[in-house]
């Protein structure tokens, strides 16, 4: 294998691993920018991965062929939206501790998805393997460019979508009045309230968008990587996405960079194994790499993180 293909494939794998993290981290940004901590990202991803696995299977079963993964994605979006209402009602309406409410989401997701899988698939611990997940879509002409063509333009449609969405979210947050309101509600809710912004409504929107995006991230794991949903389809990606969000200072572009960084350090582990000298390195050290790198980078470069000012505080209009 020549080095050009290797680099191209490395870029490609990096993006495949990053896609789910990008969606989930963008989701986290929506929620936390509105002032609601969302540690339940992991749970929303689980719900999304589950819905995608189940709905695509039934769509395949009904003979929908190549359209079935898209049915799966649709189901994941709906599932994420519904599940996020639990977090929203508890933490916004009932002013529950937002961290606790997020933990609840993770518990409910882990329990209920497997419960339903066992119910629907006659006791099996995972969904039936999908015949077709999403396929890679090469972009004409562009995909013929050396290195970059293989790396960037021969990818899943979800990956293209994730990258476009980063720009969209950036635009929405910083260039529209909706984005200004959302951020205002997370920084200084009572000031926003004074000028007529509906604080609770904005926070509901933030949390629901968050759940939908994280579920979309989960769905991409099922549809591009595993082709089935089981108890370890989502194991830690949600927390990594939270890390990417904090790492990227709650900014979509920063979170994108961090997500790609995580995807890269995960992908490079696979490529080390191609070299003879990699036998000298214990495999556990390669697995550890992304996490240790993150700690080092955080300590060396980023330092004090800048969370939205009112993150974690329920809004109580009567309180001064």
């Amino acid at each position: 294998m020549d080095w050009m293909t290797t680099i191209g494939q490395l870029i490609n794998t990096t993006l495949v691993f990053s896609t789910a993290l990008i969606f989930a981290a963008l989701g986290g940004i929506f929620s936390e920018r509105s002032g609601v901590i969302n540690i339940g990202i992991e749970g929303f991803m689980t719900f999304g991965a589950f819905a995608a696995g189940v709905a695509s299977f039934y769509a395949e079963d009904a003979g929908m062929g190549a359209a079935s993964p898209y049915i799966g994605i649709l189901a994941a979006l709906v599932m994420g939206g519904i599940a996020s209402l639990i977090h929203a009602v508890a933490s916004i309406t009932f002013k529950a501790d937002q961290v606790i409410s997020g933990v609840v989401i993770n518990f409910l997701a882990a329990g209920s998805t497997l419960y339903m899988v066992k119910l629907l698939f006659e006791g099996a611990g995972e969904t039936t393997l999908l015949k077709e997940g999403l396929a890679k879509v090469p972009i004409p002409l562009l995909s013929d460019i050396p290195i970059i063509g293989e790396g960037l333009f021969n990818n899943y449609i979800t990956t293209y979508l994730a990258i476009i969405l980063v720009l969209v979210v950036f635009y929405v947050l910083y260039k529209t009045s909706f984005g200004l309101r959302l951020r205002a509600v997370g920084e200084h809710p009572s000031a926003a309230d004074t000028v007529g912004v509906k604080v609770l409504r904005m926070r509901y929107i933030g949390v629901i968008v968050s759940g939908v995006l994280a579920a979309l991230g989960g769905a991409t794991v099922t549809l591009t990587t595993t082709n089935t949903f089981s108890h370890n389809t989502i194991s830690g990606q949600g927390f990594i996405a939270i890390a990417a969000m904090i790492f990227g200072k709650w900014n979509p572009l920063g979170a994108f960079g961090a997500a790609v960084f995580f995807g890269f350090s995960q992908a490079i582990g696979n490529y080390f194994q191609l070299f003879a000298w990699s036998k000298e390195i214990p495999q556990e050290f390669i697995y550890m790499l992304p996490y240790v790198l993150t700690v080092i980078v955080l300590v060396a470069a980023v330092g004090r993180s800048s969370a939205p000012a009112s993150l974690g505080e329920p809004y109580d209009p009567g309180k001064r």
Partner: peptide
């Protein structure tokens, strides 16, 4: 797995 749902719900009701 139903027990995870029960535990999750208990925390939910305590939190909210």
């Amino acid at each position: 797995e139903i027990i995870r749902i029960v535990i999750g719900s208990i925390i939910f009701f305590i939190a909210a």
